[in-house]
Design a protein around this nucleic acid. Structure first.
Length: 221
DNA sequence: AAGCTAAGCAACCGCCGCTAT
DNA sequence: GATAGCGGCGGTTGCTTAGCT
């Protein structure tokens, strides 16, 4: 059997349109099936990733707001590198986006810290939530921001508590109560009210066949 | 203006867990 | 209960863009 070649690398506009079309048609679940039926020479995983991180109309675009940034920091303190979990609490942001944000954020922090350290003394904490740490300046940077750095120690401690918490998804009260409430309300509303296919993407304007534009997708759910 | 570096982002890889058979 | 297939997740890589010298 001749294995059909799999396309890699950046997605073309045409591929995007095709994927959006078929996701609208069949839903955003069976990615392997979607990949095959759409005729895209991509893996199911690749299709999912493209949809989740880029094409999904529910995604926010643009820079993180200060509120979101704070939230990321808080949640990372709490959960460590559980990006998808963190993303679920920040509507419109993907795990990949948050992960990328964190890396650049921590890289900056690490650099600032190194500057300070060279002028003063090593081994100081540089996280909002870190109080003390046994990790010294000598720890390599990659290790630091990839693993959650000195926060990780705390995180490990908190995990036990949090895992229990997670069982019932009961959120306790934080210093950011207001934001939390907003976010949670939003999330609830979304899970309850939001149809699988939210708002219509502008991409639809390029739909291959005009007949689909007037199609009632709700009848498909 | 050109070259270099850092930041930002998109995409891939490998592992893990869940589910159907 | 074993196993294969798939989806989801976190880590990593590589390309592009922006900013600086």
């Amino acid at each position: 059997m001749v294995q059909e070649e799999i396309r890699r690398g950046p997605w073309t506009e045409q591929e995007d349109l095709q994927l959006v079309f078929y996701v609208k048609l069949f839903g955003d679940r069976r990615w392997d099936f979607l990949a095959k039926v759409s005729g895209l020479k991509r893996t199911g995983k690749s299709c999912r990733l493209r949809w989740v991180n880029y094409l999904n109309p529910d995604l926010k675009r643009g820079k993180m707001t200060p509120q979101e940034e704070r939230l990321v920091l808080e949640l990372h303190c709490k959960w460590g590198n559980r990006w998808s979990r963190i993303a679920r609490k920040i509507p419109g942001r993907t795990d990949n986006e948050i992960k990328n944000y964190w890396r650049t954020h921590m890289r900056k922090k690490a650099q600032e810290q190194r500057k300070k350290a060279t002028s003063i003394s090593p081994s100081s904490s540089f996280s909002n939530c870190s109080s003390s740490s046994s990790i010294t300046h000598e720890e390599n940077e990659r290790n630091f921001y990839d693993t959650g750095g000195i926060e990780q120690l705390q995180v490990e401690e908190q995990k036990k508590v949090n895992d229990q918490e997670q069982a019932g998804e009961s959120m306790k009260v934080y210093s950011m109560d207001e934001i939390w409430k907003d976010i949670e309300l939003l999330e609830e509303n979304e899970t309850i009210n939001k149809p699988i296919m939210g708002s219509i993407s502008p991409l639809w304007d390029y739909c291959p066949d005009p007949m689909w534009k007037d199609f009632d997708w709700n009848t498909f759910r």
